[in-house]
Amino acid sequence: MADLPTAPPRVMRRGVSLAALLKLPMLPVLLVAFLALSVSIDGFVSAANLANMARLFAPLAIAAIGLTFVFLLGEIDLSIGSVLSLASVLGALTMRGTASVWLGVMVMVATGALIGALNGAVIAWFRFSAFVYTLGVLVTARAIAMLITGGHSVGRLPFGALRFGRGTFAGLPWLLWIAIAVYAAAHLFLRQTVIGREIALVGANRRAAVFAGLRVRRARFTGFLVSGTLAGLAASCIVLRLGSGGPILGDNILLMAIAAVVLGGTSVFGGEGGAFRTVTGALVVVTLDKGLNLLGLAFYDQAIVMGLVIVLGSALGGYLYRRRTGRA
């Protein structure tokens, strides 16, 4: 029991093998989109643009990784967008009130964690329907954020906030480092911890998990807790980057995060998926969002292309995946 397991070599090899990469349904789409955009747009691969994209990517990826936990459980969390908004409001108010950036970040993460824990507890122990319950939280949390601020956003934050949010470390934006850290933690958590395994198994077959003596309620609780906490962390990223928080800050993130998760190839029905897939899904969303904008398309024409990519890209990814696994 004393010896902490070292990363098994076999696992590491599998982590970078071609076969493992092909498991990611969105990878070919991502590559094609990225290549096409780099050819057609001057400066798409410039350092400035990549850093810019990284800052858009970070909060989306973080929120979507949180949602991945819930999807793995075979559940849904509709509240992440408004949890993000509420957390951003409370965090920004704290920053402005105390002039401490870190206290603000802690408040945001704590707000997310608290609502996530409440969601998890209610769903796991009182067996509320996750869909309707988190829909209620979606509406309520946003309404509370509105009430607190009267609809205004909360800005004029301490200078340190922006310096961090727009700053870089070792050549990469700080926010990207946070996203990388979250990804690594989520990956290890799902892969190497008992709770992580329990989350996947509960999602794969809840009854079997009960029969196997797995801690089903703890797993479901943890999934929603992670989802809420990461929504809070995503709020921090946005607040640090923008220098403001607000009651409608997270309005767009729910659909974008769902898009990132399902495009990445995590199943809606539970038990199948993972953090890396979601990262590729989020990359697709951000690359297209930014790339189509740079192409100068009208926003509705961007939507047309985005819609086609979601449908045809997923179809292509699914086709390649089936061909590789030999499923008819």
Partner: peptide, 21 residues
């Protein structure tokens, strides 16, 4: 050089940064 942030503060920041760069 026109861009529409579509009700998203992050996207607006990103678009303006791009224009600057």
């Amino acid at each position: 050089d026109f861009a529409n942030a579509d009700k998203d503060a992050q996207r607006q920041a990103s678009q303006v940064d791009t224009m600057v760069s």
